[in-house]
């Protein structure tokens, strides 16, 4: 099992993501610099980490989503490579078109950092199967632009197809239909604003994030 974390200029949760992957797989994750043009073919799972890639200038995730490595990522996603984006990584995934919708400025306009209760809407995805019927988890959130937006037709489709994976219990940012995390049609690409990688160790105050990493690793 080989995993990788992509690092953009001013990614800042790349180390956190790598620690989580190492904890679950027992092997260090490979760090891939944004200027690389290809994800090595032996990589089984890729994480787009949180942070402020390119200073969040223009739009959050916009410039990163046009980097050389993301081009290859899009091609590999279509072939089924599992890819998860957390926080800024989720923004990169929507900007690159791998996931529908967009992340707008939080409704209350302020940055918000708090432990956030989430409901697991679909426990049968490749990212939630190991939660074994658990209905609620707590992941930290820390973002300024986490207000999920998509038009009604898209939202209806996401719901109908069971692609809303997590919802906020107590909406912290104005996200449409309390959506916190979604998957693509193929079920291999997943994005969420909360930080499961910051809930993997008792010192974090909880280990609810481990289930997510175990689920996707198990599915490969």
């Amino acid at each position: 099992m080989k995993t990788a974390v992509i690092t953009f200029p001013a990614s800042n949760c790349n180390r956190d993501a790598a620690m989580a992957l190492e904890k679950v797989t027992g092997r260090p994750a490979q760090m891939i610099w944004h200027r690389e043009t290809e994800i090595p073919s032996d990589i089984d799972f890729v994480v787009l980490p949180g942070g402020f890639s390119y200073g969040d200038y223009l739009r959050c995730g916009a410039i990163a989503s046009r980097s050389p490595i993301v081009k290859d990522l899009v091609a590999k996603a279509e072939k089924g490579l599992p890819i998860a984006g957390f926080c800024n990584g989720f923004q990169v995934l929507t900007e690159s078109g791998l996931l529908p919708g967009a992340l707008l400025r939080n409704k209350q306009l302020n940055f918000v950092c708090r432990p956030q209760k989430l409901t697991i809407e679909n426990g049968n995805t490749r990212y939630t199967s190991q939660y074994a019927g658990l209905k609620e988890v707590i992941f930290p959130i820390a973002h300024h632009d986490g207000n999920y937006y998509a038009d009604d037709a898209t939202l209806n489709q996401l719901e109908k197809e069971g692609r809303v994976v997590f919802r906020y219990a107590g909406n912290p940012n104005g996200s449409a239909r309390d959506i916190a995390g979604i998957v693509n049609e193929g079920g291999n690409v997943f994005g969420m604003m909360p930080h499961p990688e910051r809930a993997i160790d008792p010192v974090h105050g909880g280990t609810d994030g481990l289930g997510l990493f175990k689920s996707i690793i198990e599915s490969i």
Partner: peptide, 18 residues
């Protein structure tokens, strides 16, 4: 105030303003 600060990035925060 402190909810506007990321208190757990780097994943080593054991206790904070929270």
């Amino acid at each position: 105030i402190w909810e506007q600060y990321d208190r757990h990035v780097m994943a080593d925060t054991v206790d904070s303003s929270q």
